[in-house]
């Protein structure tokens, strides 16, 4: 049972529940969408601040999880726009330095092993968004349409294209990985 009333009364325990229940899930989704964990942390933090500041606007028509996602997507979009240029530059610089110094580790749990994360990273933002919402956050097409404020047909189409792009990327990387994933 979600403590909505306690949240609206801004009780400390309810705020702790909110952070404990959703922060990591939102962080993972934001990391996939933004392809940058530090930016994702900012997005999640801003998302919670917005949520607390606008608790009155939560009417309980959807779950807290869906409501937080609505805020998170808006925040991700804003942060991405704000940081897109800086992000490209910083990633390029860091990659360049690491390659020159030969510090790219090839062991497990390194960036090189993130087949799916890296594949999602190569998708356009709008495709990345629907892939994460559908396959990672496990929202239905109808819920994604509401979250993104777009018709269901648009979302289905976007998801179809996203899947096709992801398939192409993954097949280039490693064909058998893709077949076992879908």
């Amino acid at each position: 049972m979600e403590p909505i009333e306690a949240l609206k009364r801004r009780e400390e325990a309810a705020i702790h529940w909110l952070v404990d229940s959703f922060s990591d899930r939102l962080l993972k989704a934001a990391t996939l969408i933004l392809s940058d964990q530090h930016l994702a942390e900012d997005a999640v933090q801003d998302c919670f601040v917005d949520a607390i500041a606008n608790l009155e606007s939560f009417r309980g028509e959807s779950s807290v999880y869906t409501w937080l996602y609505t805020i998170l997507l808006r925040r991700c979009y804003q942060l991405r726009r704000k940081n897109s240029q800086q992000l490209i530059l910083s990633t390029e610089v860091i990659d360049g330095v690491l390659t020159r110094q030969g510090t790219h580790s090839s062991g497990p749990d390194t960036e090189a092993d993130w087949v799916f994360r890296n594949a999602v990273k190569k998708l356009k933002y709008k495709y990345r968004e629907v892939i994460v919402l559908f396959y990672y956050a496990e929202f239905s097409i109808n819920e994604i349409a509401k979250l993104l404020g777009a018709p269901e047909g648009t979302i289905k189409n976007r998801l179809y294209r996203a899947r096709r792009q992801l398939r192409n990327v993954l097949e280039k990387e490693d064909g058998h990985v893709f077949k076992s994933a879908f």
Binding site: K28, T31, L32, D113, W114, V115, F116, R117, Y135, Y136, E138, V177, A181, F182
Partner: peptide, 9 residues
């Protein structure tokens, strides 16, 4: 795909 994402994240 969900399981793969979970593993990598």
């Amino acid at each position: 795909l969900k399981a793969r994402f979970d593993e990598e994240l």
